[in-house]
């Protein structure tokens, strides 16, 4: 169940669907992802990926961008993290592809 069922192609443009919002809240200690009757606290890696899910860039571009921002991490590893997170969030209806 933890493995995303969705295939995440490099050409997909992930974005937050209506009803899912990423907001900063001081009282709750930082960024939170608000969804239908659910609240998630993204960790630092998830945040880096989520803030790039604007619908304007595709998955390959997000991976390239992260590889540039974090030159210490191998691109393949970044790609796997991105696909797993985006696929998992899409399964939970927290992202649209």
């Amino acid at each position: 169940m933890d493995q995303p069922v969705r295939n995440v192609p490099g050409t997909a443009h992930p974005r937050l669907p209506r009803g899912v919002r990423l907001v900063h809240n001081e009282a709750q200690g930082g960024w939170v992802l608000l969804a239908p009757e659910r609240v998630f606290k993204p960790d630092a890696i998830a945040m880096e990926i989520l803030k790039r899910c604007t619908g304007l860039v595709n998955v390959d571009t997000i991976v390239d961008d992260l590889a540039k921002a974090f030159p210490g991490a191998p691109r393949e590893r970044i790609h796997d993290d991105v696909v797993k997170l985006i696929g998992g969030l899409a399964d939970k209806k927290l992202l649209e592809l």
Partner: peptide, 9 residues
């Protein structure tokens, strides 16, 4: 909201 509430039902 000032108390930290995120969602209102």
């Amino acid at each position: 909201a000032a108390l930290g509430v995120l969602q209102v039902h």
